[in-house]
Simulated assay, not measured.
Amino acid sequence: MNGHSEDDLELALRLADLADTISLVRFRATDLRIDTKPDRTPVTDADQAVEEAIRHELAQARPEDSILGEEYGTVGEARRQWIIDPIDGTANYLRGVPVWSTLIALAVDGYPVVGVVSMPAFGRRWWAAIGHGAYTTDRDGAQRGLRVSAVPELADASLAMSGIDRFEQAGRLENYLGLTRRVWRTRDYGDAWPYMMVAEGLVDIAGEFGLQPYDMAALFPIIHEAGGTMTSIDGEEGPWGGSALATNGRLHEAVLATFTVD
């Protein structure tokens, strides 16, 4: 079972239910408190409340496991580590834009094996556990399995890569522009959403630089179980390389080659 069980996935889904309840109440609230962290990124009272609630539940349900969260760092040392982004897309959240999500993952020996992405403002959720498939619920509550596209060539691919400024900062702007010239279509949907579109087969390539493990960990099992491939843009396995590249698998090597620095 790769160090996890169906109970871990069920727990992750319950944690997402809890997070959605808290975040939706504060979304577009007129008294939402917004602060700036030392890295100059925004944080709201909702980010903090969601992570606190998840940590409290994990302390009861999985007291031996470690926790890594965006707002309160790492607690504990264990092979099994829960990785949490309470609100991925805080900049959208505080502006009232509905493209934000809660990301919950369980990693074993550093590799994510359970992942949940919940976008309650859209009424959508995606989840997976290694060996158990990947699934989503639509706004009407219907559940369905996920499968990446079968697009085999870059010329026919839909690309969703975020943060052109980050590609420039990483010294890969020309690589990025070169890739955009080779694909059929380019769009920037933002945050976790384009990766879920890859898992659904709606987009063929998604990626960005300047990420933390909590931005990515929940995405890996979903992409994997939907039949896709996810690494860093430099081809590194797992959510520790500071960047993300998700594809339908067929296109992965071609995109990696585009970003290769001689």
Rank of each mutant, 00 (worst) to 15 (best):
A105S: 08
R144F: 12
E237T: 10
D17R: 06
H132F: 08
Y93P: 05
Q81V: 07
D215L: 05
G210C: 00
I34Y: 04
G141V: 02
A53P: 02
R185P: 14
M1H: 12
G238K: 06
L103N: 06
A254T: 02
A226M: 04
R80C: 03
D262F: 15
I205H: 00
P221S: 04
R14F: 10
D8A: 09
A217I: 04
W126P: 14
P120K: 03
R187V: 13
T41V: 01
L9C: 10
V255S: 05
D215H: 03
G133T: 08
V117Y: 07
L251C: 11
A254V: 01
E200A: 12
I83K: 00
W193K: 10
T44R: 04
H4Q: 14
A129N: 11
R62P: 07
V50P: 09
F167M: 03
D88Q: 07
V151S: 07
Q81T: 06
H4S: 14
D47V: 00
P112A: 10
A78W: 00
Q143M: 11
T36K: 09
V198A: 04
T258L: 11
V97D: 15
P194V: 08
L13V: 10
R185L: 12
G73H: 04
G227W: 02
W126L: 07
A29S: 12
Q60I: 15
A105F: 09
T260Y: 14
R26L: 11
L94M: 15
M119Y: 14
D31Q: 11
T258F: 09
R28L: 15
D262Y: 14
V75N: 14
W193F: 14
Y189D: 14
R26A: 12
A16F: 06
R28G: 12
L159R: 02
H224S: 11
D188I: 13
F27I: 03
V108H: 08
A46P: 04
G241A: 09
D35Y: 08
S158M: 14
I205Y: 00
L256R: 04
A128Q: 07
M196S: 03
I223C: 08
V116T: 02
A155P: 07
F167Q: 00
T36C: 09
T136M: 10
G228R: 03
L173V: 09
Y135P: 01
I130M: 14
E10I: 15
M1R: 11
L11W: 05
M230S: 06
L58S: 05
L154T: 03
R26W: 10
L179P: 01
P112W: 11
A105P: 03
T74H: 10
I223M: 08
